[in-house]
């Protein structure tokens, strides 16, 4: 019933929002309440999941903190709203959250008809399949899955790609559709489905939560492009720019070798480009023009590190997921992550 409630909430907010309310910008509203309300996944290892102390961990959660650091100079001024795939867009449209950072695929439909603005790609992903190698020893390709029962989360691009892939390859399948990741995981773990499909990064994360992770293998096929990134509402360019440039600042910091450990030192000793990015140039207006303080990049890096540090800590070598940088490496290292100059 929750999404009915959200739908009614959306209808009510759309209905009751007087035209005057639209004048207040998201930045002003966020500053007035003193924190950013950030929509994250209900539980996806490496991207956003609560740890044993109830702290939200992961790449998506850290991105929320980075935006908070840029706005408030304090990465802890975030409140997290865990959302299912189905609830996420309504929550953003209705104003329940200020920022959606929930492994969401950037598509044209979401950018246009849904009234969203994607601020960048924090993780280049692709959809894959996972099977239980112990129970299905012969399966080593997704093309062998004809006739399989496949667990999938509802309301995702995953669900659509799945239909397209099986249709294109003239294979039959049996979708078992769940609203929440946890329910889909439990059903797959209990053997209700032969295969589980979602973004490959998600598969590695989910595998860790299964009762016997070693039994499951991720099949080699990647059947879609899934550029995952943060999104905001349309119609507020300033807020959109803050989120977008927070993402670029994370990349720029990595490119310039600015890390959580050396940021204070580099403020004084860095080269001209480092000093400019860190807001140490005399009479700089780069930060204030954006609507934040001039040392915003310092605050971001102090709070969550640069993009590379965020990646390694949450999904890379420093995490149980051990995902290689691959497409998510900087452009200088053969990846796709590229930031326009901060100047």
């Amino acid at each position: 019933m929750k999404h009915i409630a959200i739908g009614i909430l959306a209808a009510a907010t759309m209905g009751l929002m007087a035209s005057a309310a639209s004048a207040a910008s998201t930045l002003e509203a966020v500053k007035a309440k003193g924190f950013i309300q950030c929509g994250v996944n209900t539980g996806l290892s490496g991207f956003s999941s609560p740890d044993d102390k109830g702290e939200w961990k992961g790449l998506d959660a850290d991105f929320c903190r980075a935006v908070a650091a840029a706005v408030f100079g304090d990465g802890t001024k975030v409140k997290f709203t865990p959302l299912s795939a189905k609830e996420r867009f309504t929550a953003l449209q209705s104003g329940e959250i200020d920022l959606l950072s929930r492994n969401t695929t950037w598509t044209i439909n979401r950018d246009t008809a849904l009234g969203l603005n994607f601020a960048g790609v924090t993780y280049y992903d692709g959809q894959g399949f996972m099977v239980n190698a112990k129970k299905l020893p012969g399966v080593n390709s997704a093309l062998q899955l004809s006739g399989a029962a496949v667990c999938v989360q509802s309301g995702t691009t995953t669900e659509l790609n799945l239909a397209d892939y099986f249709k294109a390859n003239k294979m039959e399948y049996n979708p078992v559709v769940f609203e929440k990741v946890e329910e889909a995981n439990a059903a797959y773990d209990s053997g209700r489905c032969d295969a589980y499909t979602t973004d490959q990064s998600g598969l590695y994360g989910i595998r860790l939560t299964l009762s016997a992770p070693g039994d499951h293998v991720v099949l080699p096929e990647i059947i879609s492009k899934e550029p995952l990134g943060p999104a905001v509402r349309q119609g507020d360019d300033q807020w959109y720019h803050i989120v977008k440039w927070t993402y670029f600042a994370l990349l720029q910091a990595e490119e310039l070798g600015i890390t959580q450990a050396n940021v204070d030192e580099l403020k004084a000793s860095g080269g001209p480009e480092v000093k400019r990015v860190l807001g140490q140039e005399a009479d700089t207006k780069l930060g204030t023009d954006l609507g934040v303080s001039n040392d915003w990049v310092v605050n971001i890096v102090k709070s969550v590190g640069n993009y590379g540090e965020m990646f390694e800590r949450n999904v890379g070598a420093g995490s149980p997921l051990k995902i290689a940088r691959g497409l998510n490496g900087l452009w200088t290292k053969g990846g796709l992550q590229y930031a326009p100059p901060i100047r």
């Binding site: 867009f89 509802s154 309301g155 559709v177 889909a184």
Partner: peptide, 25 residues
């Protein structure tokens, strides 16, 4: 909750795929 495709489940999926919250509800 258990993945049976009843009206609520499917209308919810439609809601999400189209992004139109009010009409499916």
């Amino acid at each position: 909750a258990i993945g049976y495709p009843d009206l609520t489940a499917i209308a919810g999926t439609v809601l999400n795929q189209t992004g139109q919250a009010i009409e499916p509800v």
